[in-house]
């Protein structure tokens, strides 16, 4: 447990120092401010489509930090040094996922508030959006980490990461945006299930990818 804490604390300190924390936030706000220019200032249209737009923005924002999640540590030998200490790749990825979500999920949820105001979303929609993001951002963080482990040794990994992540993110998008217009709560349960699955498989699939990439 102490070990997990030491690993996660280093990751948090690094993302704080590298200012990578602000990239997804800035991206989300930028999309929210550009969207009204593209579709026009029709408040009813913005309110109807804005929630789904923010889900797309959150999904794309999760791809921005992918290239700094695993590759730098792999190249600088940190992953090997951790393995030498008998710490499994799965443990490392659990710590990294927790740290990555803390630096990604809550800031994105806070940025959603001004973004929702720009898109004229009403209170009930904002509440559903925030609940959906609270459940969905761990999965987006896990997906980013998973494709980061898969593409760590490759050149131009950023583009490939996008191609790998987007198909896997489709269920999150369907159920996440689905929660906005659904009063029964079914979409929320599906979103929770999809999120749980991505979070659960990431440490194992990512650990296998790191081991396979070791030469």
């Amino acid at each position: 447990m102490t070990m997990l804490w030491h690993l996660a604390r280093r990751d948090l300190a690094q993302s704080w120092r590298s200012a990578g924390l602000w990239l997804p936030v800035a991206f989300l706000l930028l999309v929210a401010s550009l969207y009204p220019f593209a579709v026009g200032p029709d408040a009813a249209l913005l309110a109807r489509t804005g929630g789904g737009m923010l889900w797309i923005a959150a999904l794309l924002a999760s791809l921005l930090p992918v290239d700094r999640l695993v590759a730098p540590d792999r190249d600088s030998g940190v992953l090997d040094q951790i393995a030498l200490r008998g710490i499994g790749e799965e443990m490392l990825l659990i710590a990294r996922l927790a740290a990555h979500w803390i630096g990604f999920g809550p800031p994105l949820m806070i940025a959603t508030l001004p973004a929702a105001a720009l898109l004229k979303l009403d209170g009930a929609t904002i509440l559903r959006l925030e609940i959906g993001l609270a459940i969905g951002t761990p999965a987006l963080a896990a997906l980013g980490l998973l494709v980061a482990t898969l593409t760590a040794g490759l050149r131009s990994s950023g583009a490939l990461a996008g191609l790998l992540a987007l198909p896997l993110a489709v269920p999150l998008l369907i159920f996440g945006a689905g929660t906005l217009g659904d009063g029964s709560g079914a979409a929320l349960k599906f979103l929770g299930a999809a999120s749980l699955m991505l979070v659960a498989i990431t440490p194992f699939a990512g650990g296998a990818a790191i081991r396979a990439g070791r030469e």
Partner: peptide
């Protein structure tokens, strides 16, 4: 236990 150095700094 094992401790190792190679050409990578890992700091």
């Amino acid at each position: 236990g094992i401790a190792m150095t190679d050409e990578r700094l890992a700091l």
